[in-house]
């Protein structure tokens, strides 16, 4: 047991690339630490993208099945993170196709907003440390409105926003994951943010 523990502690210090290289060389026990290392991050990504717990769980599992089966295609030293995201994204797109498109979220949900018509006015409602139940409810509502507006974006823009904003990837990494030029990533993100602003404005104006 202590031998296992020491070994697992030493694996914790390995980079992702070292883990995959070892796995490719036949060291099976590095696979568990790799899955655990990406558990939160990759599940979080898939859950945001797919909008469904069960589907996200299924795709997460299939992603690592694919890693296992396609380990021969991994080139030693190549950054693992974008490679994993590429597999996960492809799996997620396939899953969406199989399940039929997600039910679109209506922008009508934004009509409950109490903002004053300007995008920047939302800033004044940034979450505070208040624990007042009413305030908490308001924060939850704002979160839902933002999520709905991101969900409403076209697929390719939504993916870009999630990877850039929520997953914290560099332009270069996003380009690698989506298989598009960096310039396209930049313009997609720019367009996505413009659309989000429009949506937030429209939602606020609907109240007036």
């Amino acid at each position: 047991m202590s031998e296992n523990l020491e070994r697992s502690e030493s694996l914790e210090l390995c980079s992702d690339e070292e883990l995959l290289t070892r796995f490719r060389q036949g060291q099976l026990d590095v696979f568990g630490p790799l899955v655990r290392r990406y558990e939160r991050e990759l599940y979080g990504y898939l859950r945001r993208y797919l909008g469904d717990d069960a589907l996200a769980e299924d795709v997460f599992q299939n992603t690592f099945v694919q890693v296992f089966q396609n380990i021969d295609k991994y080139q030693d030293g190549k950054p693992v993170r974008p490679w994993l995201y590429t597999i996960a994204t492809n799996q997620a797109i396939d899953a969406l196709r199989r399940a039929g498109r997600r039910q679109a979220v209506s922008l009508d949900q934004l009509r409950t907003t109490d903002a004053n018509g300007e995008l920047h006015s939302l800033l004044d409602l940034m979450p505070s440390a208040a624990v007042d139940p009413f305030e908490r409810l308001e924060q939850e509502e704002r979160r839902e409105r933002v999520r709905a507006s991101v969900d409403q974006l076209p697929e390719h823009l939504r993916l870009t926003v999630i990877l850039a904003y929520y997953q914290g990837m560099k332009y270069r990494e996003i380009a690698e994951v989506l298989g598009i030029p960096v310039g396209t990533v930049k313009s997609r993100l720019h367009v996505a943010l413009q659309k989000l602003q429009e949506a937030w404005r429209a939602g606020a104006a609907a109240l007036e």
């Binding site: 920047h120 940034m126 979450p127 979160r143 991101v150 904003y165 943010l193 602003q197």
Partner: peptide
């Protein structure tokens, strides 16, 4: 300022 509202949904699943 225009991107700030995205922070409302910062809690990871």
């Amino acid at each position: 300022r225009s991107m700030a509202p995205l922070a409302y949904d910062n809690a990871p699943p």
